[in-house]
C-alpha cells in the first residue's frame, strides 16, 4: 500500500501530466480497440491491451527513447543534435561491414566486436560534432545539419547502399525472450529503461549533469563560476552519439541487417520526444524520464492509427497535430500549476 506522501510526490512530479495523458490514451485505446478470440488459448484478447502489441510498441519506442535521452541532454545544454539518425546509420553499417569482413566468429566475439565498433563509431561522430561546435563557434544546428548529411553520405558510399546482414548471434540476443512467451522479445524495452535510468541519474545526481543544466541555463554565469564549459559541451554531443550508437546496435541486431538509409528522419522524432517530454529548446530544462515518456506517446499515437484502423496515409498529419497539441497542453498545465502554487 503506497503511503499518501508517496502518492503526493507522484502527482506533483514533473512527469505527472505527461504520464496521465499517456495512461488516458492507453485506456481509451483499450476501450475502443475491441477484441478478438485467441486462436491458441481460446480466451478473449483485447486488440490493444495485449502483451504482443505492448511489447511491439516498446520496441518501436526504444530507438526514439534511447536517442531521445541523448537529445534531451544536448537540448538542456542549450544545443541541438540533428545528426543522430545519420550516426545511427553509419554506426550500424560500419558494424555490419566489419562483422562481414571478420567472417564467422563465435557468438560472444561477434557480439563484443559488433558492440565495440558500433559504439566506437558513434562516439567518434559525437566527439566530432562536439569539437566542431566548440572549436568553430558555429551554432550546433548548422554543424549537426552538416554532419547529418556528411555521415549518412559516408554510410551510403561505404556500403554502396547495400543492405548488410548481421550475424544471427546478435539477433539471438536482441530478440531473446528472457523467459516470456516465445514470440515476445523484451530486450529493447529493457535497454530503453536502462538508458533512461542512467540518463536520469546522470542529469539529477552527478556533477557533470548539473553542469549541463547550468550551461544551458546561463553559459556566461557558468564561465564566471569556473565551470569547464568547453569540455561539458563536447561531452553532451559525445553522449548523444553514444545513445545513437546503442540504438543502432539494438536496431541492427533486432532486424538482422543495416543499411545507409536506416533511421532516416529519426532525428525529428527524437527531438520531438525530448520536446514533448518538456525539454526547453532555450536550454536549462528537461528530464530523461520525460523524454522516454515522450517517445512512448509518439509511438502510441502511431499505434492508435493502426489499432483503430485509421487510414495510414494520415499518419504524419495526425502525429504533427498531436505533437503541437501535446506541447500546448503541457505548457498550459505548467502555467496552471505555477498559478496554483503562487496562489497558495
Amino acid at each position: 500500500m503506497p503511503s499518501p506522501s508517496f502518492v503526493r510526490t507522484l502527482v506533483r512530479s514533473p512527469q505527472a501530466g505527461l504520464t496521465g495523458v499517456l495512461l488516458v490514451l492507453w485506456g481509451l485505446l483499450a476501450l475502443a480497440a475491441g477484441s478478438h478470440q485467441d486462436p491458441l488459448g481460446g480466451g478473449t484478447v483485447n486488440n490493444f491491451l495485449n502483451a504482443h502489441t505492448l511489447i511491439q510498441m516498446a520496441t518501436d519506442a526504444s530507438g526514439f527513447a534511447i536517442m531521445g535521452v541523448g537529445a534531451t541532454i544536448v537540448i538542456i545544454s542549450g544545443g541541438i543534435d540533428l545528426s543522430v539518425g545519420a550516426i545511427y546509420a553509419l554506426a550500424g553499417v560500419a558494424m555490419a561491414m566489419v562483422l562481414r569482413a571478420a567472417g564467422p566468429l563465435p557468438p560472444v566475439a561477434a557480439f563484443g566486436l559488433g558492440l565495440a565498433v558500433c559504439l566506437g563509431v558513434a562516439v567518434t561522430c559525437g566527439l566530432l560534432n562536439g569539437l566542431m561546435v566548440v572549436g568553430l563557434r558555429v551554432h550546433p544546428f548548422i554543424i549537426t545539419l552538416g554532419t547529418m548529411w556528411i555521415l549518412r553520405g559516408i554510410a551510403f558510399v561505404m556500403s554502396r547502399a547495400e543492405s548488410i546482414l548481421v550475424p544471427t548471434s546478435l539477433t539471438a540476443v536482441a530478440k531473446a525472450s528472457l523467459g516470456l512467451g516465445r514470440s515476445l522479445s523484451p530486450v529493447p524495452l529493457l535497454a530503453m529503461c536502462a538508458v533512461t535510468a542512467i540518463g536520469a541519474v546522470f542529469l539529477t545526481r552527478t556533477v557533470a549533469g548539473r553542469y549541463v543544466f547550468a550551461i544551458g541555463g546561463n553559459v556566461e554565469a557558468s564561465r564566471f563560476s569556473g565551470l569547464p564549459v568547453a569540455r561539458s559541451t563536447i561531452g553532451v554531443y559525445v553522449i548523444s552519439g553514444l545513445c545513437a550508437g546503442i540504438a543502432a546496435f539494438l536496431g541492427a541486431a533486432f532486424y538482422g541487417s543495416a543499411t545507409s538509409s536506416d533511421a532516416n528522419g529519426y532525428e525529428l522524432y527524437v527531438i520531438a520526444s525530448a520536446v514533448v517530454g518538456g525539454a526547453s529548446l532555450v536550454g536549462g530544462k528537461g528530464s530523461a524520464l520525460s523524454a522516454m515518456i515522450g517517445a512512448l506517446l509518439i509511438v502510441t499515437i502511431r499505434q492508435a492509427i493502426r489499432t483503430l484502423h485509421f487510414d495510414q496515409n494520415y499518419e504524419w498529419i495526425i502525429i504533427g497535430g498531436a505533437l503541437i497539441a501535446a506541447v500546448v497542453i503541457d505548457q498550459g498545465g505548467t502555467r496552471l500549476l505555477t498559478r496554483l502554487r503562487e496562489a497558495r
Binding site: 548539473r210 546561463n218 563560476s225
Partner: peptide
C-alpha cells in the same frame, strides 16, 4: 552571476560542486 532558473542551492554550490561529490555523484 546566476543561473536564474536554478534553485538557490544549485547556484550556491555552482563553483564548488566537486567538493560535495564522490566519484562524480553529488
Amino acid at each position: 552571476g546566476l543561473v536564474l532558473g536554478m534553485a538557490n542551492r544549485e547556484n550556491g554550490s555552482l563553483p564548488s560542486l566537486p567538493r560535495f561529490a564522490s566519484r562524480g555523484v553529488v
